[in-house]
């Protein structure tokens, strides 16, 4: 019952966000300076008035904006994303062809980032001895460097070293699993840096909580304290970052695909933006909004799974809410928002 209600509300909020995203992108892109016909045909050709009229007819540019919006929204609801100006093909096809390479890259990068971050954090959290301190210093320096280095620079350097000089991995443009390694690592590094920092901070602060003293006083070993107790607490801020991670992957692919000359959504987006291909840009915006809605619903669900305090409507009256937990309102949707803005 509670779950059904939760999902229903999520769906409503998600649809509202999608509608808002669609409307804002329509409004922005259709109030662009310049005649859309010029954009459509390109600046090089002289256009006869007849052709101009015909194009206006086909695309409905001469109608009032509100009518265009209504028609567009109507088509959108029935699943029609329109036709690409540039490629003269249905937008769904243009994007559909490029979807898998990007998803593949994003999944591989997520796996690399998760592996690096969890490894680095578990190896260094809660270690305050002299050796541990040195290790922590090294790890956080590397993380800072990973977060601060521009993706395109790292990509070029990795490609030069591992493909051109050492010849271990295929050069840019290759397909297949070997061709995925360098782009995935490039995309993963800044994300891994942020995740490792957040996870370590989470583990450290969990280990400093009073209950850890109680647990240790029961004769529980350090490994159990770390894995059974602290890791679950540290996962909460990490889950909050999930939305940010997906966003970084999306924007990261734009750059990574350009550096490694890979096909994918990022390249299509870049080309569409350079060519002002409005239907494609709009579709990318909508796609990104769908991903956002889905990811944030997952984030909220993960919170409910991880933290029993959020599951309960009825709590003892003197109990404060869990520290750092999102407010229980429709706004928790953007719980990842404040952590945003760490790398591009």
């Amino acid at each position: 019952m509670r779950v059904a209600w939760f999902l229903l509300r999520r769906l409503a909020v998600g649809l509202a966000v999608l509608w808002g995203a669609a409307t804002i992108s329509f409004a922005t892109l259709h109030t662009m300076p310049g005649d859309p016909v010029d954009t459509l045909i390109g600046p090089t050709f002289g256009v006869t008035p007849q052709l101009r009229a015909q194009i206006n007819e086909t695309y409905g540019f001469s109608e009032p904006l509100v009518a265009q919006y209504g028609r567009w929204l109507g088509r959108l609801v029935t699943g029609h994303l329109g036709t690409s100006y540039q490629q003269q093909a249905p937008v769904a096809d243009v994007l559909g062809d490029q979807l898998w390479p990007t998803v593949e890259l994003a999944l591989a990068a997520s796996a690399v980032a998760a592996l690096l971050a969890v490894g680095a954090a578990l190896a260094t959290a809660g270690r305050h001895g002299p050796g541990g301190r040195a290790l922590r210093g090294l790890a956080s320096s590397l993380e800072l460097l990973a977060v601060s280095s521009p993706t395109f620079w790292v990509g070029i350097l990795l490609a030069t070293v591992f493909s051109t000089w050492l010849g271990w991995l295929p050069v840019a443009g290759a397909t297949g699993p070997e061709g995925l390694v360098l782009p995935a690592v490039t995309l993963a590094l800044p994300i891994a840096g942020v995740l490792a920092q957040v996870l370590r901070e989470g583990l450290d602060s969990a280990l400093e909580q009073p209950f850890v003293v109680s647990v240790r006083a029961r004769g529980v070993g350090a490994a159990t304290v770390l894995f059974v107790h602290a890791l679950r607490h540290a996962a909460l801020p990490l889950v909050t970052l999930l939305g940010w991670v997906v966003g970084s992957l999306l924007s990261g692919t734009v750059i990574t695909e350009a550096v490694f000359a890979r096909p994918g959504l990022g390249r299509v987006t870049l080309e569409a933006i350079t060519a002002r291909d409005v239907p494609v840009v709009t579709a990318v915006v909508l796609l990104s909004a769908v991903v956002f809605v889905v990811v944030n619903s997952l984030v909220d669900l993960a919170y409910l799974v991880l933290d029993p305090r959020l599951r309960d409507d009825r709590r003892a009256p003197d109990t404060p809410g869990p520290p750092g937990a999102p407010a229980r309102s429709g706004r928790s949707m953007v719980s990842g928002a404040t952590q945003k803005g760490s790398s591009a």
Binding site: Q209, P210, F211, V213, S214, V215, H229, R232, H233, L306, D307, P308, R309, T319, P322
Partner: peptide
């Protein structure tokens, strides 16, 4: 303060 001395999760 048993609230913080018991693992809340």
């Amino acid at each position: 303060d048993a609230l913080s001395s018991l693992d809340p999760l």
